[in-house]
Simulated assay, not measured.
Amino acid sequence: MTEGGVYMSARDLFELSVIEDFRSGRRTRVEAATVLGCCVKSVTRKSKRLREGGPGALRHGNRGRTPSNKTVTPVMEAALRLALSLYPDFNLTHCHEMLVANHGLNVKYSTFHAWCRKSGIKQGKRRRPSKRRLYRERMANEGLMLQMDGSHHEWNGSDKWCLIGLIDDATSDMPAARFYDGETTWGCMKTLRLVIERKGIPEVIYTDEAGWAGGSEKRRHFSQFVRACEELGITVITTPSAESKGRIERAWRTIQGRLVPELRHHGIKSMTDANRYLDQVFLPEYWAAKRTVLPRDQVSRYRRLPVGKNLDQILCLKYWRVVRRDHTVSYDGKEYRILGPDLGSLAGKDVTVHIDEEGETKWFYGHVPLETKLIVKPIRKWTRDAG
């Protein structure tokens, strides 16, 4: 870091650009709060800190510090072990009371509740009363925020497909939608690629807590889709509430009511024909013509793909491996020998394997492609089963 400079992450830079837009009048306070995922008062506080202390003031003052009241890991592990072994059928409140009274647990209920949620245990059903929903204004610019979701339905009357699509919050335009067998990471990446090729790169994608967006436990800390969006400069915001992304939820209701009978009327049964009808007839002739509105601001917030960016190297699966001393790497039970180019010793260095939808692998050291060869091991004459 240069002397006198301020280190800012990609998230910090995005927050800075949103607050600057708000201060210059290009965004309203409510729009800035929605994009940043915070309340309106937080936007006011951030704007004040930026005005008084500059860009560095947007960073949280406690960044990098260990909380003074952090509970040590052994205490958490012991509490969860007791909860699972002795109180498996207790609700969280009752379980916490028993641990405090009988085992001397000295933590707050909120801390214990957070431990259980993080570990995936004692996830009871939510029984919350319905809340009054408030009207939210559309975003001002096209491409500023797209809502993304998948709709599972028997679209052809017999087979259950998933329609993955994105809808522009400012105009209700659907730049891309496509049928797939399921709501998968590959399906979401291919649909996003259509948006980028047709319109450009949006600023924000607003979606639910699906697995491909990092909502499931196994993908909470790493989602291939979110990783690809970060490389493209797209902010992904997830929400547990279907009502908060009501624009696309209402769109699915409308599309199911109209598209299903149209497909039946035209005798369309295959997914290929359904996708063709969706792209060439339904979206341009009905949705774009009758369901879209004009944005409040005519300036599009879609961005062009930067020079040097290759969608094939972004919209794929990426995994990191460490090169062994003999210049070999392994992935999915297979070993590969690095043949070139000559970059000196790569032992102990991190390399990346890119996997496309067909399963083809390509290895990279940074942005440098590596030439590799699959190592075919000899077959043993004797096996345990044969012996």
Results as ranks from 00 to 15, higher is better:
148 M>N: 03
204 V>C: 13
37 G>Y: 08
96 H>E: 01
213 A>C: 13
38 C>Y: 06
146 L>H: 00
324 R>P: 03
122 K>G: 13
193 R>C: 12
323 V>N: 06
171 T>S: 04
47 S>W: 06
368 V>T: 15
48 K>A: 14
383 T>M: 07
337 R>P: 04
285 E>Y: 10
235 T>H: 11
265 H>W: 07
79 A>Q: 03
253 R>G: 14
363 W>P: 00
327 H>R: 10
312 D>V: 01
208 D>T: 10
383 T>P: 05
211 G>S: 15
102 N>S: 12
181 D>V: 10
243 E>A: 09
51 R>E: 15
180 Y>D: 03
55 P>K: 00
143 G>E: 02
346 L>G: 08
295 P>Q: 08
58 L>V: 08
23 R>V: 12
148 M>Y: 02
277 Y>A: 05
289 A>L: 07
17 S>A: 14
186 W>Q: 12
200 G>A: 11
356 D>M: 00
348 G>P: 12
359 G>S: 07
169 D>I: 04
214 G>Y: 03
67 P>S: 08
257 G>Y: 07
254 T>E: 07
219 R>V: 02
366 G>C: 09
14 F>T: 06
61 G>V: 10
335 E>K: 09
166 L>M: 15
68 S>V: 13
43 V>P: 01
332 D>H: 09
337 R>E: 14
288 A>G: 07
381 K>N: 13
326 D>T: 02
16 L>Y: 11
25 G>D: 09
231 E>S: 11
378 P>S: 10
145 M>V: 12
114 A>F: 03
60 H>M: 12
286 Y>C: 01
306 P>Q: 06
284 P>D: 10
266 H>W: 11
374 L>T: 11
18 V>A: 00
174 M>E: 03
203 E>N: 10
302 Y>C: 05
253 R>K: 11
115 W>N: 05
194 L>S: 14
375 I>V: 15
79 A>D: 06
313 Q>F: 07
52 E>G: 05
322 V>S: 10
317 L>M: 07
99 L>G: 02
74 P>C: 07
257 G>M: 08
307 V>N: 09
151 S>F: 03
246 G>M: 05
